[in-house]
Amino acid sequence: MCISTGEAAFSGTILYCGRHHHGERGLVHVLGYQNTAVNLADGPNAMLLHVPTRQLTPRHFLSAGRSGDVLRRMVSAVEDATAAADDIVWMGAEPQAAVQVFDHDVYTVLLADDPTAIPAALWRVPPHRRPALDPELLRFYAEHFPDHTIVVCCFDNAEARQAKPLLLWYQPLDPDRLTVPALDSHTGKAPDLDAAVPVDHWVLFSTDEAAADWGAPVAYSGGMRHSLREFLPAAVIGRHYGDGQTLPNGDFTISHGDLLGGDPDRIERLRPIRR
């Protein structure tokens, strides 16, 4: 369900990716990620996500504010639609440090184009959130995702249960391919790409180019901030993976063409390319 720097258990994961034309930022993808984490390590822990973009800064992260249920509302929309069916201008790159470190919600977040540079920046993470990082894991990301930005979300055991969804927008490497990170390894080691792993995910996608009757309409809370709402979809499609199911280790992906068709069965498992 994700990669962690120490032993952990994750459940109830919700993954979301939307293709969105923003009034100021142009064509972007929006990533949403939420789960329930239990830290089984002796000290602080962190989850790692690989995001298909070369440009990611703290300002790309969206605050959920009082709308911490935003991803669960998307899930509810798909569940309700399924039940009903059963009845019937980006402005250019910014200069940035090799590793950016900042606080977001209950996390201290590190962003790095080169994951092997992360250990040198760990001193900037508060001790109660500072995880131990296996160099093998960082080399794995450097070798398999050289064009991605690596996001390390550091947390302690008490805070993890209070985390709101992680939401961020970015300019994607491929605008017509929507992908959510779902590689699985909860031991602090690099993931086994030959393994079949248990899944407990809701996987959701959206586009603002679909027909008016496409997907399941999402009902958001009335008090949502405009700065968040302007990045969110009117409707989503998706499906649940779980109930004892196992899949080859990898991410979830769908082409924009298949997404416009509105069939969640077109969602595919994407395995990293061995380099």
Rank of each mutant, 00 (worst) to 15 (best):
E136L: 06
F145P: 00
A8S: 13
L110Y: 06
F145A: 00
E94R: 13
P146Y: 04
A64F: 06
D176N: 06
G188H: 06
Y170F: 14
V203Y: 01
L260C: 02
Q245A: 11
Q245L: 14
A120T: 10
A190P: 01
V78Q: 05
Y107W: 08
P95C: 02
L133S: 06
Q96I: 08
L260S: 01
H186I: 09
L204F: 08
V203I: 12
W214G: 02
L204N: 05
V38A: 12
L259Q: 06
S185Y: 12
L166G: 07
R271Y: 10
A117T: 09
S255K: 08
A8H: 10
V197N: 06
E230L: 07
L260P: 00
L228V: 05
D208L: 04
I88Y: 15
H60N: 14
R266S: 08
P135E: 08
C154G: 05
H104G: 10
R225Q: 13
S221L: 09
R19D: 14
L168P: 00
D69V: 03
R19T: 06
T207G: 12
A219L: 14
R274N: 01
L259N: 04
M47Q: 08
P44R: 13
D105S: 05
A8E: 09
I237P: 01
C154R: 05
D113R: 05
H22V: 03
V180G: 08
R239C: 04
L193D: 07
R19I: 02
Q34R: 09
E94Y: 13
R269E: 12
D86V: 10
R73Q: 15
P175L: 10
L27T: 01
G92Q: 09
G65Y: 14
V78S: 04
T53D: 00
R25Q: 11
H22I: 07
N157K: 11
V152T: 13
K164S: 08
L122Q: 06
S227K: 15
G262S: 04
L137S: 00
Y16E: 01
D208T: 06
E268N: 01
P127G: 00
L49V: 15
P58L: 02
Q162L: 09
A132Y: 15
D113E: 06
T53K: 00
Y241E: 04
F231I: 04
E209Y: 14
H104Y: 15
R229A: 09
V218I: 04
V51G: 00
H148T: 11
H201W: 15
P135I: 11
A37D: 09
F102Q: 10
Q162N: 08
D208A: 04
